[in-house]
Amino acid sequence: MANGPGHRMMVFMSKRMIACDEASFLISFREDQRLSFKQWWQLKMHLLSCHLCRKYAHQMGELNHSMNIYRDHCSDEKCTHHLAPEAGSRIGKEISRELNAK
């Protein structure tokens, strides 16, 4: 079976199509840069045949969306992290010391 038609077809296809590593790279790359026609076509062909990379492409869109939410979530109105009181006090003392030294 290792040398059967199915295997030979797999070898033939693998030499002409990009694999998942390159496809996932192009999915990430297109977030920042415009793909060339060849890259776009290779990715399109790969996505047609690979359900894992289709999921990956979908999840990348979600990751971008999540990072936007994460950034907004941490804006001042919805501040989720607070400076520890001890740290605030220590920094306050440092500022006072600098002000007195001026």
Binding site: C79, H82, A87, G88, I95, S96
Partner: peptide, 13 residues
């Protein structure tokens, strides 16, 4: 004098 109180949390965040 009021930097920590006014901006401490914001900048830390």
């Amino acid at each position: 004098k009021h930097w920590v109180e006014k901006y401490g949390d914001y900048l830390f965040n």
